[in-house]
Design a protein around this nucleic acid. Structure first.
Lengths: 250, 250
DNA sequence: TAAGTTGTTCTCAGGTTGAGTTGTTCTCAA
DNA sequence: TTGAGAACAACTCAACCTGAGAACAACTTA
């Protein structure tokens, strides 16, 4: 049998029925706290529970494109602001019983966005909000989304160490203090301002100066801060070090 | 409609037909070189091309279980030696046209194994071999497997920096020199023996002494080396540093 | 105008790394 | 049996990086 004959005789129905979805762990920083985009499910299963935005992959759509589409649908975002959102694949979840309807394999994605407007619930959802990650309890979450969120947060925290993604939570021009606030918020640790400043400026390609400064000093005083934009590095060398957590060493 | 009614009325056929496969990038070290497990496809598409071992996920099988099953089928491995193989999810590949038959989403996995026997071709394959990664050209590879392999190699190289996985390429007891050889092989760089020794012993939980030594010195002389086994650390703190590659800085 | 806050730059001690050296134990071959 | 070479393990030392704190000027509000 040659290749053409083979393709003509091929029947997709011979293979087990599996659905593929994309889900998005979308993170942003609001009021100094890390927030996560969630929708409240209108339909069973898990009606009334909170869930990650997501849905079926369309037949001729790339996985990343599907995730970006789902994000756009929930946030009402488009154009340049949607393009500036960082989106990467997180992991794929495929436990046979994770969805009671049928075998659903979900390709989870992770998104970093600057402070965005309140989301708009679309047809599948009762409600859509940015929820502080500290307010989460996995009991309220549908499917295995609690696990996916945990994995996404851990990926986000570790990725800030070696990739210049903290800038994706900010506007195109930002101060070193604003950048430090992103790290402190995501890592949940205060950082030494002087050392952070020295480190950021010493890593090649992390940030570059715009030459300008802020219009005003801080809300409670202090000089005007210099403005920077993201540099062209794709990895931070040497990496920033996350403050040591409680050691699990016995 | 309550949840029970909903599930009864649910028809999987309403959703687009997608097939989900698992593929495995299995790495081992043979004769001081990094090798990759490949099969030669017997059937179209890409008959005669080299491909990663893999196949369809079974209906009641976890993704990781599917990957381990595919690996076992190709290597003839089982029991304790199969259990010692490190297996982790790598990434998911779902370009709509990556398989000419239909929409196939492949969840790729990465495996680290100690030196294993030659593989046995099963029914789907003409041949199965451990191929040195330096001998690869992506023209000979089926589907997007060249890309998957590149991603897997990069993951392996970076993961050795912060995870104690180099021991997975070795027998349960090993010498520091053997461990260093794993790093040199995967990273493609010679390392300073003295500094490597100091570093490995200083990272808590990386290795622990067995108290024993090798039976003989090195093939060309030298004292007997002390034997170690893997420690209980899951991450290396502080991480090992990979020698800087040619900087991409302008 | 005074008091307090903040951005930025120093200083300094301690730790880690890269490179090289030393001493000892072993294998191989003359 | 012995000498040459190899390899494990321990060491030294300079360079660099980090954490902690201090200094100081530029701003704010009261």
């Amino acid at each position: 049998m040659n290749e053409q004959d083979f393709l003509a005789a091929y029947d997709p129905r011979d293979y087990p029925a599996v659905a593929v979805t994309v889900d998005v762990v979308a993170l942003t920083i609001r009021d100094g706290a890390l927030h996560l985009l969630l929708i409240r499910r209108a339909a069973p299963p898990y009606a009334g529970h909170w869930a990650l935005p997501g849905g079926f992959v369309r037949p001729d759509e790339d996985l990343a494109a599907g995730a970006r589409r789902e994000l756009a649908e929930e946030t009402g975002l488009g154009g340049e602001r949607l393009r500036r959102v960082h989106l990467e694949q997180l992991a794929t979840y495929g436990q046979p019983d994770r969805d009671p309807r049928m075998r659903v394999v979900s390709v989870a994605h992770l998104a970093f966005a600057p402070d965005l407007p309140d989301p708009v619930a679309d047809t599948d959802a009762d409600d859509a909000i940015w929820l502080p990650v500290t307010a989460l309890t996995s009991r309220q979450l549908a499917f295995d989304h609690g696990q996916i969120i945990d994995d996404g947060l851990e990926r986000a925290r570790s990725k800030l160490e070696y990739a210049p993604l903290a800038t994706r939570f900010l506007e195109p021009e930002f101060t070193i203090t604003e950048l430090r606030a992103v790290y402190e918020t995501v890592w949940g640790h205060p950082l030494h301002a002087g050392n952070f400043h020295r480190k950021v400026l010493s890593v090649p390609g992390f940030v570059e100066s715009t030459g300008a400064s802020t219009e005003r000093g801080g809300a409670r005083g202090g000089p005007r801060a210099k403005l920077y934009r993201a540099g062209d590095a794709r990895l931070l060398h040497p990496a920033l070090l996350r403050p040591a957590r409680e050691e699990t060493v016995r």
